[in-house]
Design a protein around this nucleic acid. Structure first.
Lengths: 154, 154
DNA sequence: AACTAATTACTGTCATGGCAGCCATTTTGC
DNA sequence: GCAAAATGGCTGCCATGACAGTAATTAGTT
């Protein structure tokens, strides 16, 4: 018994939850890129560095899973970050298929100000919310994600 | 007086509203692309066709404004859709800078089933929501967008 | 009319991202 | 043990998208 909030004959893009999510994400990306611009690091690059920094990902394959990106894209993302000197590849001896990733000193030095930038953007765009509203907001998003995952698992 | 829901020392990506919005949008895009795959039209392409179909955009510049994309990207998007035979360029006589866009018969024929596909995906991912929750959800997203736009206008 | 500014479409160049396919290595199933 | 499957990193190719810059055209000003 699925709901029928939207129907083909009355569909208006401005009322679409998909459109609104897209608009919100667009604003977040714009603000984050503007905030990060002085460092020369883009938002996608920052996400990668952060996953390594917080030890959520040790290898390129880990990163692909964390960010839901293709492994081929990730290879080239790591190429760019290595070229910029923020990341280092180290061939694993335990499993010679793997290449471990490490932040360089330069990469580690970036992190504190970058985390602050992201936190500032989020807080700014949540102006006027109270804690209960934010919790509800997050629960709505999690429910949408869970619905999608449940359907895909079928 | 901005809120401090997030702080640099306690930032956890899985709790970030930005991360959750990204996850939700990722699921929408995946589902939409899967739904549209049989037609050979991608989600970005569908958005363009839809804006033309609903007369929200008559020219490439209109489309760029509607979709918040670059005009250079839009030129090439229109190239691809014209090559596929779903869209036609017609030089405007009234303003010779402009190129008016028209759906071909093939393009128009695609629309009804495409609209239905999008509607189905949205309804599926909103399973378990009631109308009041959906309205609240949309208002949260609109408030985030409004905050971002207010800040940018300053 | 002449000059300037704005607009439109376009191009080159780059970053990001998906998909398919490759090879080396490791794990699994028998 | 050994063949088959899975995994990890990589490459080629393409779609999408941003940014900067160009040429043609139109609008606005003087």
């Amino acid at each position: 018994m699925k709901p029928t909030f939207y129907s083909a004959d009355s569909y208006v893009i401005g009322d679409s939850i998909g459109f609104l999510i897209g608009q919100a994400q667009l604003r977040l990306h714009d603000a984050l890129n503007a905030e990060l611009a002085p460092t020369g690091i883009s938002w996608p690059q920052w996400k990668v560095l952060m996953h390594v920094y917080y030890k959520r990902a040790e290898t390129a394959a880990d990163l692909s899973r964390c960010t839901a990106n293709d492994t081929g894209s990730m290879t080239r993302m790591v190429d760019r970050l290595e070229e910029k000197g923020f990341l280092r590849r180290v061939r694993s001896e335990a499993d010679r298929r793997q290449v471990k990733l490490e932040l360089t000193d330069a990469g580690r030095a970036l992190m504190p100000t970058m985390v602050q930038a992201v936190v500032d953007v989020l807080n700014n765009q949540l102006e006027g919310f109270d804690q209960a509203e934010l919790d509800l907001f997050k629960s709505f998003l999690r429910r949408m994600v869970a619905n999608a995952d449940a359907r895909k698992a079928e």
